[in-house]
Amino acid sequence: MRFGILVNEGPFNHQASDSAYKFTEAVLRKGHEVYRVFFYYDGVNNANKLSEPPSDDRHIVKRWSELAKAHNLDLVVCVAAALRRGMKDELLAEGFRISGLGQLIEAGIQSDRLVMFGD
């Protein structure tokens, strides 16, 4: 099955990003396809390469980058939501790209299931 993933909350405040990551990882492990992971609302903050959690905590941003690298995932940050929150190209961690909301709609059309994490 082909999945689209939508992440609507930032890292740490809410578990949504962790759940999205775990779900994406499980989907890939089961041999399914992930068409795209789209970051909206405060979810855009998951792409901030300046994030530096304590070393005994999970590194949410780096974890997404590594998963993207291993599985050639398309991690897309919404441009309108990103600009509002000061998230720009120069802050993007590896594997993320900034593009329009159309990429979310397209993922909804192309995927068998679009799964949303966060409010």
Binding site: S99, G100, G102, Q103, I105, E106, I109, Q110
Partner: peptide, 11 residues
Amino acid sequence: EIEGVENTGGV
């Protein structure tokens, strides 16, 4: 112009 808009295959 919106990126991806041409890529819906008429769905």
